[in-house]
Amino acid sequence: MEDLDFLKQHWKKDDDFPKVDREEIRRMLHRSSSSIVKWIFFISVLELLAGLALNFFLPGSGHEPGDPAIMIVLEDIFSVVFYVVVIYFIYMFFTSYTRIKNTNSTRELLGDILKTRKYVDQYIKFNVLYILGTGVVVTSFILYQESIERSKSGDMVFFLIAMIIFMALFMWLLIFVVRMYYKVLYRRLVKKLNKNYDELVKLEEEEIDS
């Protein structure tokens, strides 16, 4: 990107700078955008593999004897939905990467950048909502089971209120950490992709005006 910034500054300062440099800037923006989307694809694949590894190796990640049938069914449904949606987004990231890599049209490149940005936003929102939904379901089952076990105890109401507060704070902290993670990785890459998009738009406008 340093070479790209140098070319842009040099080209803007000198009106007699050869037109080929505009094309060189466009090609560098093209390569940069392709590389950014490739990293988005790689990171999403690594996240999926890490999730599968945790589910496989983490003790107690499977069903426990005595778990309510409804909880087992919901857990399986949530897992299937999660992996299907994540694989869908991975496929869309890969498709965006191949399109950006192989296109020679600036107009198509601009459209693919916008689509990739939309996919990333949807991917982040889905993961946050999935964590929130899973937390609500798990908390509900914990409260239900504890209410049955403590139905004859005088501290049931106090316990349920304390559990709700604890789970709410835990979910808030977890979502905050997840959002920060996505901000550091995905948002940073999308920010660079947006910068490339703006530069490509400027090149197109300058080419039309010239």
Rank of each mutant, 00 (worst) to 15 (best):
N127Q: 14
L132K: 12
L109D: 00
I72K: 12
T139I: 09
L52T: 09
A53E: 05
I131D: 12
I90R: 06
Y91M: 06
F94L: 08
G66F: 09
N104S: 09
L54V: 02
V120R: 06
T116D: 06
V81Y: 10
M71R: 07
Y119F: 12
V85E: 02
V80S: 12
P68T: 08
Y130I: 04
V120L: 12
L114T: 08
V138L: 14
G111W: 11
Y123E: 01
D112L: 10
V73K: 09
Y130M: 12
Y83F: 15
P59Q: 02
Y123T: 05
A50E: 08
S79V: 08
N55P: 00
T116H: 02
V85D: 00
S105M: 03
A50C: 04
G135E: 01
G60P: 07
F93Q: 01
Y123A: 01
L129K: 11
I72V: 15
G133E: 08
R107D: 14
Y119A: 10
V86L: 14
G51Q: 06
G66T: 10
S105I: 00
Y91L: 11
V85K: 14
G60F: 04
I100P: 06
G51F: 01
Y119W: 12
R107N: 11
R99W: 03
I87N: 03
L129Y: 14
F126Y: 15
L109N: 03
Q122E: 04
S105L: 04
L52G: 13
V81R: 11
T106F: 05
P59H: 02
G133L: 13
G62F: 14
L129F: 11
N55K: 10
R107E: 15
F56C: 12
G135P: 04
V138A: 15
S140V: 04
R99D: 02
V81F: 13
L74N: 00
A50S: 09
A53P: 00
V128T: 05
F82W: 12
N102Q: 09
R107W: 11
D67Q: 15
I90Q: 09
V81I: 14
D76L: 04
S79L: 14
L143C: 06
L143Q: 10
L58W: 08
F82Y: 15
F141I: 11
P65I: 03
D121T: 06
T103E: 07
V73R: 05
L143W: 03
M71S: 07
F141C: 08
V80C: 12
S61H: 07
G51N: 14
V86M: 13
Y130A: 11
T134H: 13
M92A: 05
I72A: 06
F57A: 10
P59G: 02
S105T: 01
P68L: 06
L114G: 00
L52I: 14
F126A: 11
F89S: 04
K118G: 03
I70Y: 07
A53C: 06
V128N: 01
L54G: 03
K125Q: 10
Y88V: 08
G60K: 00
G60S: 00
L74A: 10
